[in-house]
């Protein structure tokens, strides 16, 4: 092996010397594939920046700034995704007066790729959510809500596979338990399914059957419940599953200064991220891919 490595190195440098124009470094950069994931959660109908007099976050947020920021990043890397982890609705009178139309239209304008569904997205009832769907030009991804006896039947997907940079990016979604959180008259016959079992199924399908290079979970389960640690949350889910590279979380309005690195059930490192609420932050995670044969036994390096 060592001898072959030596030959490979010498021959490549030989080629470099001979061919001139093809430099080693540009060749390697070309080979590293780069996917950028941008994300929000719990934007709660906030479009305008908070007032300068706001007690907690003066002047922060604003969807027009988010739009410019996303644009800039897309120009730097066209292989960029924009996701949301639910609770798009409720929080300002824009929702109360326009019912979610402005939220969906603006997210479409920002070219969101997909969102999962949060509990507050049922605030005008499942019919209120359904009514706004024509304004959304992005996917709704949720695997553990069974909508078959509701108007939402067929309007969401358990998972989606996106193709970018010659890679397959598998995305699935998880919603929070609705009972006790959302009025039953609002979610009607939506059935909530066990997120752990569903996540195990989804990640297996995406990784082992569909050969996705990256598996992302959009979750509205909540980051972690300190007072109720047995309650399913992103942190507990991550430990009980494998093949998920990144959980983009929501619901608990958790401000993570950097993604949490968690060991999954196979002992591999994965990431959970959540960026607070109201579009005060934009989360960014960059994945660089290399030819599997070039990855050392130590595996990936995570710089957070």
């Amino acid at each position: 092996m060592k001898r072959r490595d030596f030959i490979k190195k010498t021959t490549v440098s030989g080629a470099f010397l001979t061919l001139g124009g093809l430099s080693l470094s540009s060749f390697q950069e070309e080979k590293l594939k780069h996917i950028t994931i941008l994300h929000t959660n719990d934007t709660h109908s906030h479009f305008e920046p908070l007032k300068a007099t706001n007690h907690s976050f003066p002047g922060r947020g604003g969807i027009a700034r988010r739009a410019a920021l996303v644009d800039k990043i897309r120009k730097e890397n066209p292989n960029t995704f924009l996701f949301d982890a639910g609770d798009i609705f409720q929080g300002t009178p824009y929702f109360n007066f326009f019912g979610g139309e402005v939220e969906f239209k603006l997210m479409s304008k920002l070219r969101y790729d997909a969102s999962t569904i949060g509990n507050h997205d049922f605030d005008n009832g499942i019919d209120g959510l359904f009514k706004q769907l024509p304004h959304a030009k992005f996917d709704f991804i949720i695997a553990n809500y069974d909508f078959s006896n509701t108007v939402m039947d067929g309007k969401t997907s358990p998972y989606k596979i996106y193709h970018k940079a010659g890679l397959k990016i598998g995305v699935f979604g998880l919603g929070v338990g609705l009972e006790g959180l959302v009025d039953s008259g609002n979610y009607k016959e939506t059935k909530y399914l066990d997120p752990v079992g569903i996540a195990q199924d989804m990640s297996r399908i995406l990784k082992e059957e569909k050969y996705c290079d990256l598996v992302i979970c959009l979750s509205h389960l909540g980051y972690y419940y300190k007072r109720n640690p047995d309650k399913i949350s992103d942190l507990t889910l991550a430990k009980q599953t494998q093949n998920i590279d990144l959980i983009i979380g929501g619901h608990t309005h958790t401000f993570l200064p950097k993604p949490t690195i968690v060991k999954n059930s196979a002992g591999e490192n994965m990431l959970i991220n959540q960026v607070g609420k109201w579009g005060l932050n934009l989360g960014r995670v960059d994945f660089y891919f290399d030819d599997a044969r070039n990855i050392s036994a130590k595996g990936k390096s995570i710089i957070v």
Binding site: D213, K258, N281, G283, I295
Partner: peptide, 13 residues
């Protein structure tokens, strides 16, 4: 292809 490096950043709006 396999993930080689992951970088993350929180961008304040």
């Amino acid at each position: 292809y396999k993930v080689k490096t992951i970088k993350a950043e929180l961008i304040e709006v």
